[in-house]
């Protein structure tokens, strides 16, 4: 009997050896740690069922700009799932690892889920922060990461800008003044969104955190629900964190098929449900409706409408000598 069991075990080992072990490297940005932990498990199970192959998805997380830089420097990503399109454009542009039309290859701007920028405040909202102008009231300290390295920080910056430019009586010049004033209220610029959340939540610095919606929900959950509150401003920005296969790396590894299937999976009902559960706004209308309680419907500006797309926004606002460099004077 025991011999038989060993024999069976040996046989199953042989079987396992026939099916290939494949691995993917997904280089992502900070707040997706929990999301991709769940997605990877679900997709690996599905892939195993479909092909018999054992799939391991390895993860590397950093600020979106830092992750993009690492891929440009040679971090061998099969897929990138970053906070904004410009950071993938940079990989296409500087390292030529994928074609510049990458964003056309998957539906909806290559973005399976969206998010937005919200305020996280301390319990009871002691500063009565309700909307963007409240952030620049005297004495309010705002925590947000460095727009040069963090994707979430760029979305936050642009959300504030869009508010100030589009409100009645607003203008480009007034928006610039508002942003300059806003960053005078920022005592800490971490390099990534997760760093900022830690600064705000664990170290008790600042009165309001400009945060990804999903990151704010997660902080709320981690803290046990009685330390923070989420505040939705009167309007915000439609943040589209895109995904892409890094062609040259995937082809070199022979993983293009599984890499493409992995990204397709992100649009499936199963994955959309996981994304909603991890507080990303799913593209699927039914699933979004089912989770409507977590995702209040506020007006969201799109980057194309207000800023003419990422390339232009990046160049005007975040390049060396751009608006951010002009208005941000640290230590003052």
């Amino acid at each position: 009997m025991r011999k038989l069991a060993i024999f069976a075990a040996a046989l199953s080992l042989c079987g396992a050896a026939h099916a290939a072990d494949v691995s993917l490297l997904n280089v992502s940005y900070d707040p997706t740690r929990e999301l991709y932990k769940d997605i990877n498990a679900a997709f690996a199970a599905q892939w195993k069922q479909k092909t018999g192959d054992t799939l391991t998805v390895n993860m590397s997380h950093n600020g979106s700009g830092a992750s993009s830089r690492a891929v440009i420097d040679g971090l061998d990503a099969d897929v990138v799932t970053l906070a904004l399109a410009y950071d993938i454009d940079a990989i296409a542009d500087k390292a030529k690892l994928l074609p510049s039309n990458w964003q056309k290859r998957l539906p909806q701007n290559s973005t399976p889920y969206t998010s937005t920028v919200v305020f996280l405040v301390r319990k009871g909202n002691p500063w009565h922060i309700k909307d963007w102008p409240d952030l620049v009231r005297p004495g309010v300290h705002v925590v947000t990461p460095n727009p040069k390295t963090s994707g979430g920080a760029r979305w936050s910056y642009l959300a504030a800008w869009a508010y100030a430019e589009k409100k009645p009586g607003g203008s480009w010049e007034k928006a610039k003044q508002f942003i300059a004033e806003l960053y005078r209220h920022v005592p800490v610029l971490d390099t990534g969104a997760r760093g900022s959340t830690t600064t705000f939540a664990q170290r008790g610095i600042g009165d309001v955190l400009l945060s990804w919606e999903n990151e704010a929900h997660l902080a709320l959950k981690e803290a046990g629900g009685d330390k923070f509150e989420i505040v939705y401003p009167s309007n915000s920005i439609l943040a589209e964190p895109p995904v892409a296969v890094v062609d040259k790396n995937a082809d070199r590894h022979g993983t293009r098929k599984v890499a493409e299937a992995y990204l397709q999976f992100l649009y499936s009902k199963e994955a959309q449900e996981i994304e909603a559960k991890d507080f990303y706004r799913p593209r699927d209308k039914d699933i979004l409706a089912a989770h409507a309680r977590d995702f209040p419907n506020i007006p969201l500006y799109s980057i194309d409408d207000v800023f003419g797309g990422w390339t232009k926004a990046q160049q005007v606002h975040f390049s060396d000598g751009g608006v951010f460099d002009q208005i941000y004077k640290p230590g003052q």
């Binding site: 950093n62 830092a66 440009i72 500087k94 610029l189 390099t191 640290p330």
Partner: peptide, 20 residues
Amino acid sequence: NLPGVSEIAPLMIIIKLQEY
């Protein structure tokens, strides 16, 4: 790591790297 206040030089190198 407050810019201009408690940010050390080695961290500045890392930040520069992350900014390309």
